[in-house]
Design a protein around this nucleic acid. Structure first.
Length: 434
DNA sequence: AAGTGAACCAACCGCTATTCG
DNA sequence: CCGAATAGCGGTTGGTTCACT
């Protein structure tokens, strides 16, 4: 049995919208909200399909849409994110405030793709077609690195998009626009262009929606889609870990969050540890680590040291970031912290107006943990997204950020990105390249 | 001024995922 | 649990505008 005849095509208009139709749609939504798109056209007096109305609204009429020429910065962001994410326009759009996925997609197809092609860069792989540029000269390590970068950034963006949605649901007003790294992403037009989800309650600034963070994670990793993902490689685990990192400042070109107490990028380790304690990584494969040590011999559904270890790009067991992570897991301190986290989350579920009341204490606890080797972690994170300068200096530099032995070779990745961006920057719109 | 092709972009199509009764 | 309804997504189309001859 097919669907009911919901969309009689006879008598329904197609093609460009007229100003009168736009006005009708706008007026109806402003007064009633869109509710059911299916029922909307009749109620609004439009001879359109509901789907057409929805697209017109989401891609054109919505008040929080910026139209007009893309800036150079926006172009660079699109190119970078496309290299990481491919044609995942909604994910890319989360980093371009007020731009719709459709608009970005069109801009890519009609402008940026052609530019890259003319520059001799394959717009699909983002690599020089002649394999002569910079460090990406067919080195398999580049492909591996880029693949991992994509996994990390992909998961991070997905989580970020979820968090934005969650925040929209919970918080409806916020007159205290954050001045201290707090503040949620509010409504459909966040005042802050990028995420600022984590922080400790303090001062007069409103607390950020850490409960939202936790809820988003729980939602993500308990979803059927993730449970059913039985691929026998480390992708699942790496992505899961990256979602824990999603709220952290990865020093990516589009992310600007620092932990307010000064332990920059500390969230990465903190939330990896959180996830470790929760045992929710869904590590359903047995072959993550066959090197004979005890890193991943659990063969169950818990995250292993090896999982975190690998995701941070740390293979040198002597470096401090590794030591730090291993210590977290093996000393069981995190479990206690996580008990508090879960309890606090449950306790604040019904207290949407003060979501961080319980969690602020947890963040205090984490800040102690974060005191360890934050710069190594920052460096590893920076390497993971191939941008930024890798933390704020300091640290012992023995993790991936220093390019010593990590899965991510930061120098080569930076070379790769710089080569693309320099070409773009050096080619103004009117030049032959474009 | 007219013709032609390129460029642009809003809108549509078809499919998948998710929600809901 | 099932199936319909809905939402979301990526690819594509086609009408309009622009640039060139």
């Amino acid at each position: 049995m097919g669907r009911s005849p919901c969309c009689e095509k006879v008598g329904l208009k197609k093609g460009p919208w007229t100003p009168e139709e736009d006005q009708k749609l706008l007026a109806y939504i402003e007064e009633h909200g869109h509710g059911s798109w299916r029922a909307l056209p009749a109620k609004a007096g439009l001879q359109r399909r509901g789907k057409s109305c929805r697209l017109r609204w989401t891609n054109y009429l919505r008040p929080d849409i910026k139209r007009g020429k893309f800036s150079l910065q926006e172009e660079q962001t699109i190119i970078q994110l496309h290299a990481l994410l491919g044609n995942r326009w909604p994910a890319i759009a989360t980093h371009l405030p007020k731009r719709t996925d459709n608009e970005i997609k069109n801009y890519w197809n009609t402008h940026l793709k052609k530019r890259l092609t003319k520059m001799g860069i394959d717009p699909v792989t983002h690599k020089p077609k002649t394999d002569t540029l910079g460090s990406s000269s067919g080195n398999p390590k580049d492909a591996a690195n880029l693949s991992h970068m994509a996994q990390w950034e992909s998961a991070r963006l997905e989580a970020e998009a979820r968090l934005v949605r969650e925040s929209k649901l919970i918080v409806t007003t916020n007159t205290n626009a954050n001045a201290n790294g707090g503040g949620a992403q509010l409504g459909s037009a966040p005042a802050q262009p990028h995420h600022q989800f984590i922080g400790k309650a303090g001062g007069s600034a409103p607390p950020p929606p850490c409960l939202d963070v936790l809820k988003a994670w729980q939602s993500s990793w308990s979803s059927s889609a993730n449970k059913s993902n039985n691929n026998n490689n480390s992708t699942t685990n790496s992505n899961a870990l990256m979602c824990m990192l999603a709220v952290d400042d990865l020093e990516s070109p589009t992310s600007t969050l620092n932990f307010p107490d000064g332990h920059h990028s500390a969230g990465a380790a903190g939330f990896a540890a959180m996830q470790a304690a929760l045992g929710a990584f869904g590590d359903n494969n047995n072959n993550n680590d066959n090197d004979g040590d005890d890193e991943d011999n659990n063969n169950n559904n818990t995250v292993s040291f090896h999982d975190i270890h690998s995701a941070f790009g740390c293979t040198d067991s002597s470096n401090s970031a590794n030591w730090f992570l291993e210590g977290l897991i093996r000393n069981n301190n995190v479990s206690n912290i996580m008990d508090s986290v879960v309890t606090a989350a449950a306790a604040t579920t019904t207290a949407a107006t003060t979501p961080l009341t319980g969690l602020s204490n947890i963040m205090e606890n984490f800040s102690d943990v974060f005191a360890y080797a934050p710069d190594d972690i920052a460096n590893a994170s920076a390497a993971a997204v191939g941008g930024g300068e890798g933390g704020g200096g300091g640290g012992d530099g023995s993790c991936a950020g220093a390019g010593a032995s990590g899965m991510f070779d930061i120098q080569e990745n930076k070379s790769y990105w710089n080569s693309i961006l320099n070409l773009v920057n050096a080619s103004p719109s009117g030049s032959p390249v474009f």
